[in-house]
Design a protein around this nucleic acid. Structure first.
Lengths: 231, 231
DNA sequence: GTTTCATGGTGATATTTATCAATTAATAGG
DNA sequence: CCTATTAATTGATAAATATCACCATGAAAC
């Protein structure tokens, strides 16, 4: 991890969190003065579950995975962290501990922003606070929906959902690099890696997707959506 | 549902949300002027998933269940709603729809507070906004933890966890009325009702709890905690 | 280029959990 | 008090999913 500043300022940054537009010039300056950049290589841990929430994290370029480390070394992948999104677990406002670990998947350029400063601005800027509330609420809604889906859908539905997540949210394309291993896809959908392999093959055999070890192509989106819904 | 006001004002209410102490006298008055009370009988729906988030809900007395209505009429019970807690799904700040349904379990006396007023106060009172952020973050953290537990623990662990939730959070007592049916306990722990019955019996046979159809008594808490952790 | 190690993949089997069918207890109305 | 319903319970069975053992492949390390 290197610490050379590559982004000149928050004001001109094109990858910044959209809620920053609600800050005054002074507040944005304050943020800018209390940030530091870092770059990470694939596999490196950017933020560790349980450590103090001293910073809010943003990704300027690249992708990372966020995951909770559960019992017996079993991980649970929450999401793919993308540029422009606030990465800050709910623990920040509860026990001041990181709720999850963040690890780089590709090369990542990241910005850390001092959380005390961040929190201070939230207290005085109502519009910014509301933006944060929206952001946290959105994530909370996603995780509630996900919890219900994990509970009520069977493996086919859960895996189909994950494939659509990569297509719709991460890559915005029907064809993409599968940046997660089969093991990790399992950690995201609560399946054993062998089951991931088998169901990917089934989906390929029935012409819904093309899949090799590193690439996914959605061939019959309607059918995949059906599978994700009917579960 | 009747609509007689039984509580004279928010200012003197002993069951009010603790975050209301951060309001000014004027703001608290505003809240008080924009609330209405209602009482519900057991089983009645107090708030319906998908309906507009026109109000934040508080319970003055009694208990309710909050649940998400999933596919094929399968419900997923999120929590037992208790006096003094804010009941407002994340949808309020996302799509202005109720994220879950709330149904009375016992007789319930409730307060509905106009959400526009509520939101307006959040914008101008930073301390109140921070309190709301803490509240939402707490719920979000609970649901993340729950999602991981549902994924990684087996039935015994999940049921033990639910029994401890009733003991530690809902009743604060090792002996309590089981206000949920076996079916509902299943909707909370993602188990079929038959499995709930069987595992309750196993726990009773091994001396960890006493259980009849309406009562639970924790006999060996340490063992139950072990099961909830290892399970 | 060979070795090493992680990942992908496959079949057989074990475990977990749900479903089905039937019976018994509990409860609400009349 | 009696009857109609709903919930609780039980055993048998089926379905879903995980685990195990193993081999193939491919990329990184030497």
């Amino acid at each position: 991890m290197s610490v050379v500043n590559l982004i000149s300022s928050c004001e001109t940054c094109t990858r910044r969190w959209k809620n920053f537009k609600r800050l005054t010039k002074e507040e944005l300056n304050l943020v800018n003065e209390n940030r530091y950049e870092a770059t990470f290589k694939p596999g490196e841990i950017m933020m560790k579950q349980g450590s103090p929430t001293s910073n809010a994290l943003f990704i300027a370029s690249g992708m990372a995975k966020t995951y909770i480390e559960g019992q017996n070394g079993k991980n649970f992948i929450l999401s793919i962290a993308l540029p422009g999104r606030l990465i800050l677990g709910p623990g920040a406002y509860v026990d001041s501990r990181q709720t999850y670990t963040v690890a780089a998947i590709t090369a990542v350029q990241a910005c850390f922003i001092n959380f005390e400063i961040f929190k201070q601005i939230v207290r005085v800027n109502g519009a910014f606070a509301e933006g944060l509330l929206q952001d946290i609420s959105e994530k909370s809604l996603v995780s509630l929906t996900r919890m219900v889906n994990l509970s009520q859908k069977k493996m086919h539905g859960r895996l189909a959902e994950a494939l659509l997540y990569f297509s719709d949210v991460v890559f915005k394309n029907d064809e993409y690099e599968m940046i997660l291993s089969r093991q990790e896809l399992g950690e995201m959908t609560n399946m054993a890696k062998e089951c991931v392999v088998r169901i990917l093959k089934e989906l390929e055999d029935s012409g819904v997707i093309y899949s090799d070890s590193s690439k996914i192509k959605i061939l019959d989106r309607e059918k995949l959506v059906q599978i994700s819904l009917k579960g």
